[in-house]
Simulated scan of single mutants.
Amino acid sequence: MTSPVFREVAISDLDGCYAIESEAYEGDEAATREKIATRIKRYPEGFLCAELNGKLIGFINCGCAWEVVMSDEEFKELIGHNADAPNVVIMSVVVDPVCQGRGYAGQMMREFINLMRKKDKKTIHLMCKTHHIEFYAKFGFDYIKPSDSEHGGMAWHEMSMTL
């Protein structure tokens, strides 16, 4: 398997990121183009892209907080984000549907965790659907609780890991 190249996002990635987010997530679960643009502009260093043969195939993006409230919808627009805060909150882990099932999400997650360690972050938090709990547990995430979030009208679970 060819390994992707990992890099920080650029504003020129906006359309590609939005296309992948829209295709990979169900219904209202996907971030809007505007939210993705805000995340790219406000915290590009928390936005890891994966490329394969020069084509964007996936990304992980996050914000940082002093206090993590996973059900805070405003945080998805980086309201309350502080790049110096020690706690990372992942908003998207997404791979282009045509590239799924090949281990790229796992490679991205390992790269992202290492990147956050290099940035001296202390914890990483995320919300996921039931069928992804086992995937994140493989990387050292602990199950916290069912989330209060009703984002996209779906059931979510909160997980976190200490770096």
Rank of each mutant, 00 (worst) to 15 (best):
M1T: 12
M1I: 12
T2L: 12
P4C: 10
F6T: 09
E8L: 05
E8F: 07
V9S: 05
A10R: 15
S12A: 08
D13E: 02
C17R: 00
Y18Q: 10
S22E: 06
Y25R: 01
D28W: 12
D28V: 02
A31F: 02
K35R: 15
I36H: 02
A37F: 00
R42S: 15
Y43W: 14
E45P: 11
A50W: 10
E51V: 08
N53F: 04
G54L: 00
K55E: 14
G58I: 02
F59V: 10
I60A: 10
I60E: 04
I60H: 09
N61W: 00
N61A: 09
C62R: 02
C64Y: 05
C64K: 06
E67T: 13
V69T: 11
M70C: 08
E73R: 02
E74W: 08
E77A: 13
I79F: 03
I79C: 03
N82W: 02
A83P: 12
A85R: 04
N87Q: 12
V88M: 04
V88A: 04
V89G: 05
M91G: 15
S92I: 01
S92G: 12
V94I: 06
C99R: 12
R102V: 07
G106D: 02
G106S: 08
F112E: 01
K119D: 12
K119W: 09
D120P: 05
D120F: 09
T123L: 05
I124V: 13
M127I: 03
H132K: 13
I133M: 09
I133D: 11
F135H: 04
Y136T: 12
K138E: 12
D142H: 10
D142G: 09
Y143K: 11
D148M: 05
E150R: 14
H151W: 11
G153D: 05
M154R: 15
M154F: 14
A155M: 13
E158L: 04
T162A: 15
T162D: 14
L163M: 06
